[in-house]
């Protein structure tokens, strides 16, 4: 983590409004309307899930720090706001984003090692020729206007841990909520501290069961949320409630300058992630992408 978020390139150039983001994507798609009608691709939200999970798989293979993986997630998202998916080999982009992010977060891997691991994960899409990754790194940096520092919500979470006297279970749950938010567009839409506050609220309101730091919060949260996602807001607004911890959080929020509306919107986005996750079918995404890439021989 370096530099100041408020003057960062992340805040100045890579924070979108929902409308702007949709517009940018529409514009990219427009030129390929024919291709889209011939070979439709999965919904953006499903693709988000797919790419994030593929990237996590690569990260896990190489036991990478969460921070580097998170940065790679952002690189992929940024890249696809400027390039149309159909003109790329997404697996090469994922690999390159990972390779570059590791260098950025000071835990570099050798290019051969990265290519080797990516190849064993996606043998149909990654060639052994390492120069492809080198070229793609170059393109990735160029598309991102060489703005490479990314601020993540994890740091805010650890800073607030003692202020809000969060239990280690709550921190673990909030941590996995943050992991999950990389499966959505949220990192392009809201500041990292807003995401962190959202994760804390979810963690405090829904009593954590057992979650590990590296997993997703989905198993423990989906069911709870399905029972009534509005519970969060009810719980927060319930002044006379018998939950002093929640009250403490509410009064802290009221005194802070955090944009509460944004926090609420983030929460809703996350709730809908857990909803759509139930329809998600990895195999289906994989097949569609496979057809897309094979059709164009993009993997060569």
């Amino acid at each position: 983590m370096a530099a100041n978020y408020w003057v960062s390139t992340q805040r100045r150039y890579w924070l979108f409004s929902r409308e702007k983001l949709a517009e940018a994507r529409e514009k990219l798609k427009e030129r390929d309307n024919v291709a889209y009608s011939q070979l439709p691709l999965p919904d953006q939200r499903l693709l988000n899930i797919y790419f994030s999970q593929q990237l996590s798989k690569l990260g896990k293979r190489m036991s990478t720090r969460q921070q580097a993986l998170a940065t790679a997630q952002i690189y992929v998202k940024r890249f696809y706001t400027k390039k149309e998916l159909r003109h790329t080999n997404p697996y090469l982009i994922l690999t390159t984003a990972f390779y570059l992010a590791c260098k950025m977060e000071e835990c570099p891997h050798h290019i051969r090692f990265v290519v080797g691991e990516a190849r064993s994960l996606w043998p149909d899409f990654i060639t052994p020729d390492i120069s492809k990754l080198g070229e793609c790194e170059f393109a990735l940096i160029a598309e991102m206007n060489s703005q490479l520092i990314v601020h993540h919500p994890y740091r805010t979470l650890s800073e607030l841990q003692s202020d809000l006297s969060l239990t280690s279970d709550e921190v673990a749950l909030a941590w996995s909520v943050i992991n999950d938010h990389y499966l959505t567009d949220l990192p392009l839409l809201y500041a990292p501290h807003v995401i962190a506050v959202m994760a804390i609220i979810i963690a405090v309101v829904f009593k954590p069961s057992q979650t590990s730091f590296h997993g997703s919060a989905a198993p423990s949260l989906t069911a709870a949320m399905r029972d009534g996602s509005t519970n969060i807001f009810a719980a927060l607004g319930d002044k006379g409630g018998n939950a002093p911890r929640i009250q403490k959080l509410v009064s802290w929020l009221a005194e802070s300058d955090v944009d509460i509306r944004a926090v609420v919107e983030c929460t809703q986005e996350l709730v809908s992630l857990y909803e759509i996750w139930e329809q998600y079918n990895e195999k289906h995404c994989k097949e569609l992408l496979m057809r897309m890439v094979k059709n164009k021989n993009l993997y060569k």
Partner: peptide, 14 residues
């Protein structure tokens, strides 16, 4: 592009 961009270049730009 044998080795990708060097750490120096990355750090400097970053």
């Amino acid at each position: 592009f044998k080795d990708g961009l060097s750490m120096d270049a990355i750090r400097e730009v970053k």
